[in-house]
Design a protein around this nucleic acid. Structure first.
Ligand code: MN
Ligand code: MN
Length: 725
DNA sequence: GCTACTC
DNA sequence: GAGTAGCAACGCCCG
DNA sequence: CGGGCG
């Protein structure tokens, strides 16, 4: 279909006449041209009098209006708009300084730009004739319908006078809280570039999450305190204040109660609509404290929406600037702003205040949802200061940490965690875990509840935590009890509290990084159990030496074989180990098998551990071929006990001693004395009910793990010779 | 147990 | 607002 | 190299 091109009717005659193009940077404009889409620009023109120029693409030129007081959002407010000369299309993107003495001398900036549609019959072409233009603007700042109506010409007037006003639509703003929406200095001038208009009702707040600092970061960081409290969003919308995110309902309700000071200060923010990202904390004497305090405060660390705009595309640096302009110091609403300080300084201050992490955020990065490496959690430990410096220098260094030196380190005493009903505190994420459903039955055969499991772990935590310390954890979770499908979890969920120790490990194959949970306290253990993660599967190696297991594992898996065969195999294994002068921990797996853990000195990698376990396994099979096998193919095991030595491998796990298993009776993996290996032994006797009563005995057995054996090869050689003899 | 996604 | 999927995996052995 | 295994 051939369309006849409409001849441009706009004219640049007046535009050209007013300008000396040798002097002004403004575009000369070629001949008027037609565009496929209708665009507009709103210039902020700081000339002899500050005003705004609305320019509409039509008929090959920019039809222009000068608006002394800017664009209003309230339909009741009519603003004078004086028709000015048409500008060339190139002017859509013009910004610059018009020199003194020239026409319109001063600064011209793009306040907003975008496209527009016209109401049928009221487009600029017809409207400039009829005196009524109806526009629907799609800009980053302006959105919705505005009308331009020509006033009756006054005698002697050489510029047409029009009135510009907002039409009544969903975008109109009439409330007394609608401030900062007219264009004035309230709108940071640097903002618009990356801004997107955020349609009301669609302002979702996908949380930006923290990744764990792996080894280094390569950006200019903003270091922040990791506040202990509830991470959430605070939204102010034309006087209404509410929280978004976890426990939003409860906290919003409390804005009329004990959080009222936050609400009232939020209403005082210099913006009608804003959504802040931050942390709700309890305070004592003006300082954030974990748990109870005498007051509450919201520490705003970020701003995601500001007035009509989604400001997430802005660099953190810019968002912090907006934050600073919005929150100018108050008692209950604090802006967390970048300060000139190095990571070391903050790290040492925080370490002295017993913080375990701090945050490093990339100042040049936008706000992204999910976990990403522009927001990092930095673990603070004894080495914190030097680590931060190393990383800051961009030097690739491996994560340092507690290593294995402190194997016998005492853990904090188990502490009862309970729900604080009706308490007036902000449930802090720091060192407390909110327990839900204590009475939920997890073991229907026995009636054991989640509370029973929690109580059990509280009792064994002093033994269990030192074993788990620094080990990457996989949890098997049964949030609905053992009769429902459980699932494994390696990655710590996003919602997990900040204070938990995370260990990011990149998989060798896929390159994917998994944020492992490290259970380093009774509280972390409580967290796992609260989430239904009561079956504990730690690695065989620890942080700092992830490729060096601190024990070799011989896993006796009966599957269908009788348990007495397992016992017989274990006894022979014990004989072998004794001959080699190797101490080892025997434990039930908690199900039907037995585990033998041979502690290793540092420096043995998985290959060595596996080779050793394989050697022992082969000796066993040689001696007891009728009941033992290392056959991988299940069909060829034929009722024999499978001796699994292949679990001695990076990334593989073993059920932790004292771990509860998802079986009737709530059995636990229990350390055994070798002389308990007799035909009366029944792994089902060791349960969450029975084991706490034997805790001293079981604790003593664990101590063989404290000293790792050396000279494995020599030990194996000795055994080989002994068997041959 | 909790979040994210779909209806 | 209700309902539901997801939440692990890779190194090693053997054929 | 693919499949099975834990
Ligand atoms: Mn102007
Ligand atoms: Mn096993």
């Amino acid at each position: 279909m051939a369309t006849k091109k409409k001849k441009p009717r706009g004219s640049l005659e007046r535009y050209d006449a007013k300008r000396d193009f040798a002097r002004t940077p403004e575009p000369r404009g070629k001949r008027p041209m037609h565009a496929r889409t209708h665009r507009y620009v709103l210039h902020r023109h700081d000339a002899s009098h500050l005003h705004w120029d609305l320019r509409l693409e039509a008929e090959g030129v920019l039809r222009s209006f000068a608006i002394p007081k800017g664009v209003a959002w309230d339909p009741k407010v009519k603003r004078l708009a004086v028709r000015t000369e048409d500008h060339p299309i190139e002017y859509l993107t013009f910004e610059g300084e018009i020199p003194r003495g020239e026409y319109g001398a001063g600064t011209m900036r793009v306040e907003d730009s975008g496209t527009y549609e016209s109401v049928e019959g009221y487009d600029p072409v017809q409207g400039l004739e009829s005196g009524e233009i109806k526009l629907r603007l799609f800009g980053r700042k302006l959105r919705g319908e505005w009308h331009l109506v020509r006033m009756r010409p006054r005698p002697g007037e050489n510029n047409e006078s029009w009135l510009l006003f907002k039409a009544k639509d969903a975008y109109a703003k009439t409330s007394p809280f609608a401030r900062g929406c007219d264009f004035s200095d309230a709108v940071p001038a640097a903002l618009p570039r990356a801004l997107h208009f955020a349609e009301p009702g669609t302002r979702e707040v996908a949380r930006s999450d923290l990744a764990s600092l792996d080894d280094h970061y390569g950006f200019e960081p903003d270091f922040e305190v990791a506040f202990g409290g509830q991470r959430c969003w605070l939204e102010v919308d034309e006087g209404r204040v509410r929280f978004r995110g976890p426990r939003a309902r409860e906290h919003t309700r409390r804005l009329e109660d004990d959080l009222a000071s936050i609400a009232s200060e939020a209403r005082g923010i210099a913006a009608a609509c804003v959504i802040l990202d931050g942390v709700l904390v309890a305070e004592s004497e003006g300082q954030p404290v974990p748990g109870d305090g005498d007051a509450f405060a919201f520490y705003a660390t970020d701003v995601v929406y500001y007035e009509d705009w989604d400001v997430r595309p802005l660099a953190l640096r810019e968002r912090k600037r907006v934050l600073g302009a919005l929150l100018t110091g108050s008692r209950s609403l604090h802006a967390v702003l970048p300060v000139e300080r190095d990571g070391d300084g903050l790290a040492s201050v925080l370490t002295s205040q017993e913080h375990t992490t701090m945050l490093a955020k990339e100042l040049d990065a936008p706000y992204r949802s999910g976990k990403h490496d522009a927001w990092l959690r930095v673990r603070l430990d004894r080495k914190a200061q030097s680590n931060v410096r190393e990383r800051k220098a961009g030097a690739k260094s491996t994560t340092k940490g507690g290593a294995t030196k402190g194997r016998a380190r005492a853990s904090s005493p188990a502490r009862e965690s309970k729900t604080k009903r009706g308490s007036k505190s902000i449930e802090s994420e720091h060192h407390t875990v909110r327990i839900t459903n204590r009475d939920k039955v997890w073991f229907p055969h026995d009636g054991y509840t989640k509370g029973d499991v929690l109580d059990y772990y509280a009792r064994v935590a002093p033994l269990l935590v030192p074993f788990l310390r620094d080990r990457p954890m996989t949890l098997r979770r049964f949030p609905d009890g053992i009769e429902s499908e459980g699932f494994f979890q390696k990655n710590l969920p996003e919602h997990a509290p900040d204070w938990l120790d995370r260990l990011p490990i990149e998989s060798r194959g896929s390159g994917r990084t998994i944020d492992y949970l490290v259970i380093d306290s009774a509280e972390a253990l409580t967290f796992a159990v609260q989430e239904g993660g009561f079956e504990l599967h730690p690695w065989l190696s620890r942080r700092g030496s992830l490729d060096e297991p601190d024990f070799a594992l011989i896993d006796l898996d009966p599957k269908t074989a009788p348990f007495r065969d397992v016992v017989e195999i274990a006894r022979f294994a014990h004989e072998l180990l004794e001959r080699a002068s190797l101490k080892a921990l025997l434990k039930t797996s908690g199900q039907s098998g037995l585990h033998i853990l041979v502690p290793l000195a540092r420096g043995y990698d998985y290959d060595v551990a596996r080779g050793f376990a394989e050697g022992i396994a082969r000796m066993i099979v040689q001696r007891l071929p009728k009941i033992a096998t290392i056959e991988r193919d299940q069909r060829r095991r034929s009722g024999r006990v499978y001796i699994d030595y292949l679990q001695n491998r990076r990334g593989q796990t073993v059920v932790a001693p004292f771990s509860v298993r998802p079986r009737p009776g709530a059995p636990v993996s229990t350390p055994l004395d070798w002389d308990e290996l007799d035909d009366d032994l029944d792994p089902r006797d060791f349960t969450i009910r029975s084991v706490p009563a034997q805790i001293e005995k079981r604790a003593a057995l664990m101590r063989v793990l404290e000293k790792g054996s050396k000279a494995l090869d020599a030990a194996l050689d000795r055994l080989v010779r002994w068997l041959e003899s």
